[in-house]
């Protein structure tokens, strides 16, 4: 359902919720935001649980830093935590570290909600059409999105070639030395690929600053504005109740 919505109102709503999550220093609000975003992804969009948990790992690690700092080094981090507590809409009932931990997860889950329900190509097109993102920047973003899986494949080849040279099996995860060894050829690959793509796009008529049309743009629907309105209204209600 969320995948059918226009990317821009959806992005606006997600940014508003993330903004609120940053401003409201209340564990209940963070948990509510997290639960809501999780519920929409798991219950409505049917995203696999393992995928959601895996996506939350970096946010949890980030938030865990606040938590451990708050619990283990309470004295040393007192000033920072006090600053955080003195924000607007603060509820003093919970440990600040716990609130910051929940905030990291809540912001991560809302970001995941947007990323997992939005077609990146449609988003870039919408940005080009409605927010005047220059076409050269838009197509550069699309190229970057193409580049990610290509870089992954190239890394595998480089790692296999290195393992062959060293007479060792390919490790499941690369170590720091291996990472360093493949980074230069990988960078060379990325630069060469980007140059070729730029030449090809120019050959096919992409001119910065020139008008261009769009074959297919996702139109705004009534549902997009209803979704945005309901989302903002619900946020207001939650803040008011808390």
């Amino acid at each position: 359902m969320l995948s059918q919505l226009h990317p821009l109102p959806k992005m606006a709503l997600c940014l508003i919720w993330i903004g609120a999550s940053v401003l409201v220093f209340d564990l209940r609000f963070q948990v509510m935001t997290l639960t809501l975003a999780f519920g929409l992804l798991w219950g409505v969009e049917r995203v696999a649980l393992w995928k959601l948990l895996a996506l939350m790992v970096p946010f949890a690690l980030f938030g865990f830093g606040f938590l451990t700092t708050s619990v283990l080094f309470n004295k040393e981090s007192g000033f920072a935590l006090q600053m955080a507590q003195e924000q607007a809409m603060t509820s003093p009932d919970f440990s600040p570290g716990l609130v910051l931990f929940a905030r990291a997860l809540a912001c991560g889950m809302v970001s995941a909600l947007f990323a997992l329900t939005t077609d990146p190509g449609q988003l870039v097109r919408a940005l080009m059409v409605h927010l005047r993102l220059p076409a050269s920047v838009g197509f550069a973003l699309m190229q970057a999105m193409h580049l990610v899986p290509d870089l992954g494949r190239e890394v595998q080849v480089l790692r296999m070639a290195r393992a062959m040279r060293l007479g060792k099996p390919v490790r499941r995860m690369p170590g720091p030395r291996e990472g360093m060894a493949v980074s230069i050829p990988l960078l060379a690959f990325a630069i060469r690929r980007a140059s070729r793509a730029a030449v090809a796009m120019e050959a096919r008529g992409l001119r910065p600053g020139q008008p261009r049309s769009q074959m297919q743009t996702q139109p705004f629907q009534k549902a997009d504005w209803v979704f945005l309105g309901l989302g903002v209204a619900f946020l207001g209600l939650v803040i008011r109740v808390l």
Binding site: M142, D150, R196, A197, A200, R204, G205, Q210, S213, M215
Partner: peptide
């Protein structure tokens, strides 16, 4: 122009995007 290595020279995100890329650059009607 058709380049040797399509892998590195495609511009669009989807198949339709790609085929329409040069036409959009000429601002043709949808």
């Amino acid at each position: 122009m058709l380049f040797q290595d399509a892998d590195q020279t495609l511009a669009g995100f989807t198949v339709a995007d790609e085929i329409a890329f040069a036409l959009e650059n000429r601002a043709l009607s949808p």
